[in-house]
Write a protein that binds this DNA or RNA. Sequence first.
DNA 1: CTCCTTTTCTTGAAGCTTCAAATATTAGGA
DNA 2: TCCTAATATTTGAAGCTTCAAGAAAAGGAG
Lengths: 162, 162
Amino acid sequence: MDEPRWLTDEEQKAWRQLAMLMTLLPPALDSQLQRDSGVTHFGYWVMAMLSERPDRSLRMSDLAARASASPSRVSHVVARLEKNGWVRRARSSCDGRSNLAELTDAGYRKVVDAAPGHVERVRDLVLDALTGPQLQEMGEICGAMLRRIDPDGRKGTRPLTD
Amino acid sequence: MDEPRWLTDEEQKAWRQLAMLMTLLPPALDSQLQRDSGVTHFGYWVMAMLSERPDRSLRMSDLAARASASPSRVSHVVARLEKNGWVRRARSSCDGRSNLAELTDAGYRKVVDAAPGHVERVRDLVLDALTGPQLQEMGEICGAMLRRIDPDGRKGTRPLTD
DNA sequence: CTCCTTTTCTTGAAGCTTCAAATATTAGGA
DNA sequence: TCCTAATATTTGAAGCTTCAAGAAAAGGAG
């Protein structure tokens, strides 16, 4: 029954700005990628993760951890990417439960083609909007919130034997 | 054909933090509200906007502007809220094109009931994660990005005659 | 007054995400 | 070995968002 600690004006103002950003930024990124490359921002993100690996592949669960998304979401997205011929799935040889998602050549080309336009958009909307110190500070601020949301910050996870 | 300006390590790191936050924060807020009150974060947001008005109502277009969302999205959401009996729609008397969305008594109660738990969550994940100066800085940083995304920052809009 | 344009809002379909449940495989213990 | 639990992933349905198109009213020119 404790009276909740309502937000001060300062807090309310800052929180509203963040809420607005969360509402407007994702669609702004999506629309550019969708229009120019026919990919979702999240789909692009997933393929970019794969493209960074030496063998262009990751276990589904590691992919999910790196993309900060639920296994289910990643599974659906990869299914769509696979339908487009950009990703291929194969069962892991050492653990029959695991699936490996691997970027195809077409998928790699897709990422490479989409990257410049996407980077430009990120620059335009995010990076160029901020001063150097602000950029630094933003990283720390986001990090602080992320630690609250996901205390055991998923990152490297398992050794990836296969 | 200009070579795009790729991201520096600093930029990449900061941007990834922000991207992760955009992926994780909305679901984190949604799940609390959905579980405890059966409302979406956006649905709550819309009802909260209405609840702040003296007459608990807004024109659909103003509601959309304040919620930073497309008319279509607001229309669908309000339709759902209306089905739940939380919002009522009525054609404006002075401009037959406009629709007024008005929070019902049940809707008002819903917002009031949901508010404490939601505020607590926002505190937990966002506000309590930051120092005072960081909070201030976050507001400014978000504001800077928002001005890039939506240069003519929608806010007060029209006079609301009715 | 009529026609045309603009504004405001809604609609339906398609796509994406979530949730709960199902499947398949490995691991651990009696 | 067999049984149970834990792990890794998928699936289908329900709900939400977007997109493109549509309807209705207002404003303005002729």
